[in-house]
Structures are given as structure tokens and as C-alpha cells.
């Protein structure tokens, strides 16, 4: 148990160092805040424009769609801020920077996760929280203690599942030749599908993005369950299961990948 306490301490220390390194790009940070606000505004504007013409999509109102969006954006911001290192693995393997990590007496996974920080993530989480607050305010949900706890658990689970997705996609670089691994970008782009309720897609797509790349468990099932939509109860029960599965898969991929790793440096 004490071992994990040390890891958490180390994690915090690494992140504090990362934050310090950001101080040299102060103007860029302000620009990023502006660009993020602008782009998220455009994305939400698009949803508003679609809904200004019609009352509902697949039985979901605009505010309910905002909730889906909020879940996705929050988990994205969470990765950017806390575990942005997951994006860097590809580059590290290619540049043989991983060697440096291998000789340190700290778990490689921890070092990889803290390899980078993106302050923009904080920004995204704040926007997402605002979107969720507005969304929940407009949807009629009878709140009680159980539901509040469920909401927090769902959000945490969504973040875990998404970190694992990026992690696994990035770790594919261990087996791929060449510089580029576009799988993680592909996984992120697929998130576009999770912005709308899964019921509008044909069964094949539902299968792929519901189970193979479990985006349905990031946004559709949790939000559906909170709103009391039909047919989401079983899915909501499946979320913790997928969470554990993804975590196990991530650990396995890292272990196998490291066993398979051949440094490209000399």
C-alpha cells in the first residue's frame, strides 16, 4: 500500500514540474484559452443550429445532447490535463526517449503518463462543467443523493475509459514500424459519433463503437441512465465492467509492449 502512496506523491511532483515548464509560454496560454472557447462555442453553436430547425434527434432534445457533449468534453479535458503523456508514447518510442525511462527506478507507466501536460485540458473541463450544469438545469431530473453520486462515478468512469482508449491506441506503436501511428487520432475522431445518441446509427456501427471501441459507455449509457431513457439500464451496469476490462488491457499492452521493445538508438 505504501508503494502506491509513493507513486501518487511522485505523480504530483512530476506534474508540478510540468506546470513550471509552462510558465515560459504565457501568451500562448492565453491564446489557447481564446481558441478553445471559440472552437467549443462553434461546436455547440452547430448543435443549436440543427435544433433551431427541428425539435429532436432520435428522441433526444437539445439539452440532452448537450449532456452527451459535456461528458465527452470533460473526459477529453481530463486526459489533456492529467494524462497527456499518453499521446506522447508514439514519439518517445520513435525517438528512443523511452530508454531514459527504462533505467530509472520508477514504473515506466507512471513516467509515460506524466511526460507532458496540456493546460488547455483545464479549460476544457471548465467549459464541460458549465455545459453539464446548464444541461442538467434544463432537463427535468429528480435529483437525490444517489443520483449525484452516480453522476460523479459515471464521469470518473468516462475519464478512465477514454484514457485507456488513447493509451492502448498509442501503445500500438510498440509493434508498428515507422514514425507515424495515427491510431490515436483515429480513436479521438471516432468520438464524434458519441456526440449523438447511439440509437440513430445502424446496428453495425452500434456494435463497433458500442463494444469494440467503447464510446457508448463514455457518453450514451451514463447520460441515458441519468435521464431515465429506455434500454440504457443494462448498459449503465456494464460501465464498471468495461472500465476494469480497459484498465486490464492497458496494463497488459504496456507490459507486452515493453517486452517487445527494441530501442532505435545506438
Amino acid at each position: 500500500m505504501q508503494k502506491y502512496g509513493t507513486y501518487i506523491k511522485l505523480y504530483i511532483m512530476f506534474q508540478v514540474q510540468n506546470i513550471k515548464s509552462l510558465a515560459q509560454y504565457r501568451t500562448d496560454f492565453l491564446m489557447m484559452v481564446f481558441f478553445t472557447l471559440f472552437s467549443q462555442g462553434c461546436n455547440l453553436g452547430l448543435i443549436c443550429i440543427i435544433y433551431s430547425n427541428i425539435p429532436q434527434v432520435g428522441g433526444w432534445t437539445m439539452w440532452e445532447i448537450f449532456l452527451l457533449y459535456g461528458f465527452l468534453l470533460f473526459s477529453e479535458g481530463f486526459i489533456n490535463f492529467f494524462f497527456q503523456g499518453a499521446w506522447k508514447i508514439t514519439n518517445m518510442i520513435h525517438m528512443a526517449e523511452l530508454d531514459r525511462f527504462l533505467v530509472r527506478p520508477v514504473p515506466v507507466g507512471l513516467q509515460l503518463l506524466t511526460a507532458k501536460i496540456d493546460f488547455d485540458g483545464l479549460n476544457k473541463m471548465v467549459i464541460a462543467a458549465a455545459v453539464l450544469a446548464v444541461g442538467f438545469g434544463k432537463c427535468e431530473i429528480s435529483w437525490d443523493v444517489k443520483k449525484v453520486i452516480l453522476l460523479l462515478v459515471f464521469l470518473a468512469e468516462a475519464c478512465i475509459i477514454r484514457v485507456c482508449m488513447i493509451w492502448i491506441a498509442s501503445c500500438a506503436s510498440f509493434w508498428m514500424e515507422g514514425k507515424k501511428n495515427s491510431l490515436n487520432y483515429f480513436v479521438i475522431s471516432l468520438g464524434e459519433m458519441a456526440k449523438y445518441p447511439m440509437v440513430i446509427y445502424p446496428p453495425v456501427f452500434q456494435g463497433i463503437f458500442g463494444y469494440l471501441i467503447p464510446y457508448a459507455f463514455v457518453s450514451f449509457y451514463p447520460v441515458g441512465y441519468l435521464l431515465g431513457k429506455e434500454g440504457t439500464g443494462a448498459g449503465a451496469l456494464g460501465i464498471p465492467f468495461f472500465c476494469v476490462l480497459m484498465l486490464a488491457a492497458s496494463c497488459m499492452v504496456l507490459r507486452q509492449g515493453l517486452a517487445n521493445y527494441e530501442s532505435s538508438s545506438y
Binding site: I50, V57, S182, Y185, F186, S189, L190, Y196, I200, F205
Partner: peptide, 29 residues
């Protein structure tokens, strides 16, 4: 080409998503 293909696929996913969003909209009206 891999950069280009990823970009294209990302756009393509967006097109597919919009396709189904509109499809579900047009079943009502």
C-alpha cells in the same frame, strides 16, 4: 500519406455521423 489518410478518415467519420443525424431527423419530418 498517413497524415492525409487520417485527416480524411476523421472528416469521413464526421460525414457519416451527420448522415445518420439527418437520417433520423428526416424520419420525423
Amino acid at each position: 500519406r498517413s497524415t492525409f489518410i487520417t485527416g480524411m478518415l476523421a472528416n469521413f467519420i464526421q460525414a457519416v455521423v451527420l448522415y445518420y443525424v439527418w437520417k433520423s431527423i428526416f424520419t420525423y419530418q
